[in-house]
């Protein structure tokens, strides 16, 4: 796609509010979120859909915003960690991460929180096995994961 190709108009729901942008065909969603909307909670790390730091929810399902083209948001709902933080129903989840010290450097935390939200929306009472499976695509290099799993267990209980 040569530079200068027509930009694609994108209307979508961003953290619950109507949003509009014109995006270059090859712009990844993360650049739209961070660059155009200033939502820097979404982190770029591996840039290859492996680590989960850039995860956002697209119509409730986790996707890697580092690689998904921004135009794929057309007509859909995008939730970033900023939207999660503003959502009162999700407060027990963020609080459980604090209570359990489920992060150290915090770089993976936005993706972990969003993966956990997608899980809890689908399954309010997940087993430890199910939690590990749902978070298995999100890489943390600090915690060893135990505290993260415990935080999600606590959040599930608090949110039921």
């Amino acid at each position: 796609m040569p530079d200068g190709m027509t930009e694609i108009p994108v209307r979508f729901t961003l953290n619950g509010a109507e949003a509009e942008a014109a995006v270059a065909p090859r712009m990844p969603l993360i650049d739209l979120l961070r660059g155009e909307f200033g939502l820097t909670g979404t982190k770029r790390s591996c840039d290859a859909q492996v680590c989960g730091a850039c995860a956002v929810l697209l119509d409730g399902q986790p996707v890697s915003s580092c690689t998904l083209p921004a135009f794929e948001a057309r007509g859909k709902a995008v939730l970033t960690v900023e939207g999660l933080a503003a959502d009162e129903r999700s407060a027990p989840l963020t609080e459980a991460f604090v209570n359990n010290a489920a992060f150290q450097c915090g770089f993976c935390t936005p993706g972990m929180l969003l993966a956990a939200k997608a899980l809890l929306d689908a399954d309010p009472a997940p087993s430890e096995e199910t939690i590990k499976d749902a978070l298995s695509g999100n890489v943390c290099r600090c915690t060893g994961y135990k505290k993260i799993v415990e935080a999600v267990e606590e959040a599930a209980e608090a949110m039921r």
């Binding site: 989960g52 995860a55 399902q61 996707v63 890697s64 695509g137 999100n138």
Partner: peptide, 9 residues
């Protein structure tokens, strides 16, 4: 296959 994000797309 891969991870949940790749499978969703």
């Amino acid at each position: 296959v891969a991870n949940a994000r790749v499978r969703n797309v």
